[in-house]
Simulated scan of single mutants.
Amino acid sequence: MTAPSTPATVLDPAGDLIALTRAICDLESVSGGETALADAIEAALTPCPHLEVLRDGDALVARTHLGRPARVVVAGHLDTVPVAANLPTRLEGEGDDAVLWGRGTVDMKGGVAVQVALAAALQAPTRDVTWVFYDHEEVEAEHNGLGRVVRNHPEWLTADFAVLGEPTAAGVEGGCNGTMRAEVRVPGVTAHSARSWTGTNAIHGTAEVLRRLAGYRAAELDVDGLVYREGMNAVGIRGGVAGNVIPDECVVTVNYRFAPARSVADAEAHVRELFTGYDVTITDAAPGARPGLDHPAAADFAAAVLAFTGGAPAPKLGWTDVARFAELGIPAVNFGPGDPLLAHKDDERCAVGQIRLCHDALRAWLTT
């Protein structure tokens, strides 16, 4: 393959892990702007003689070919949600008690840094490893870089087990909730605002939609021993024509996070039932994944890692690409540094000790 051009940012996978994490975080990569980071990781891993490096757009695969009896995928996304005056990163404190602040430190460049460091360092792991770095995870499922690799190069992802480096506070989280976005349309009748009684205000009409959402009680469903909490929330609203016109339409965008016991069809039916009487359009949906911790590969991983880090398996309440691996028939779990409750927050921050702990636990599992 053609050697990558020299990137503006040079990553040192053999250097200090936290310095590597900061360099990766400081290389801004909001969804759609991952090229510079993909270039930097490609340049860092291509010289490694034990890795075959492949690329599709801004998705990278670096894999060993050692003839091991099993192969594992370790995957992470390169993109973040928009920056909110929280870059460049800053480090506060000393040693493992230090805290790294900044966009991406939790979701999920701490995990990506662990991947880059281990991909370069582990020349002879006990399992063949496919390290995957992909784009466009934080946006609509149709743009997801891992999904693109599945469509274009399914053979790149052949594996017996997968680990997603999503934030789990260095614990093991099984499965994930599904996600669905819907647009609820409220009709109205246009009129001059000076004679508003001759029209019907669609924005005012959203009060009933919002009332139903405000009164919604999220279910908590036990799925194979893990309890998944659902959620139904308005995440956007648009309407209005001009400052002197009564609007004839207002659209409320709703995001439904549903437990993996429900199918996409079940979720759609639930949304439509909640908004009976309204025009509802489903704009995006991705199924969840059951925990799968009863699969031998997942159980062995959880036992080995949790013996190292402590704790017990928990549910992943967000959506992650474990669902995509589940659709491929590959058991998968979430394991990475960072408190998931801090993902996407303006004060996003990650404990340095968790980044090192995940690195050491994953290294131990891949070398024993």
Rank of each mutant, 00 (worst) to 15 (best):
P82K: 08
H359V: 03
T320R: 07
R272F: 06
A242R: 13
A8I: 04
P187I: 11
T64E: 04
A242W: 10
V114M: 06
A120Q: 13
D160T: 00
V163H: 01
R217P: 01
L213P: 08
A299K: 03
L66P: 00
G165S: 12
V114K: 02
D347N: 15
E220V: 14
G225L: 05
F308A: 10
D96C: 06
E220N: 06
G95H: 12
I203P: 03
G225H: 02
G318A: 15
L20C: 09
L146P: 11
F335K: 02
E348D: 07
V30C: 10
E94R: 12
D56P: 02
A351M: 08
W365K: 00
T80P: 00
N201G: 08
E249R: 13
V61N: 01
S263N: 12
N144I: 06
T200Y: 02
A218G: 09
T206M: 10
A38M: 03
N255H: 06
A312W: 04
A218D: 14
N144E: 07
L293M: 04
A289K: 05
E142V: 14
C176F: 10
P313M: 02
G329P: 02
T206V: 15
G225I: 05
S31G: 11
R55K: 12
H143C: 10
D248G: 15
L357S: 05
R356A: 14
G57M: 09
D339I: 03
A219E: 15
A141M: 12
E183M: 08
S5T: 13
R211M: 09
W156D: 05
A59S: 15
N177A: 11
L66S: 01
G311L: 06
I330K: 01
P4D: 01
P154W: 07
T21M: 08
A312E: 15
R185Y: 05
R68L: 02
M232N: 05
A286L: 11
W365L: 00
A343H: 04
L11G: 00
D266I: 09
H270S: 13
R229Q: 10
R22Y: 02
S5P: 11
G102A: 08
V223P: 01
T130D: 08
L328M: 15
A361I: 02
G174V: 01
G338A: 08
G104T: 07
V184I: 15
V139E: 07
P4T: 01
V251K: 02
E268P: 04
T158W: 07
A62G: 09
R195S: 12
A36E: 12
T6M: 03
G338Y: 04
A38S: 13
N152M: 11
L27G: 01
P247Q: 10
G15E: 11
R63L: 10
Q115W: 05
K345T: 15
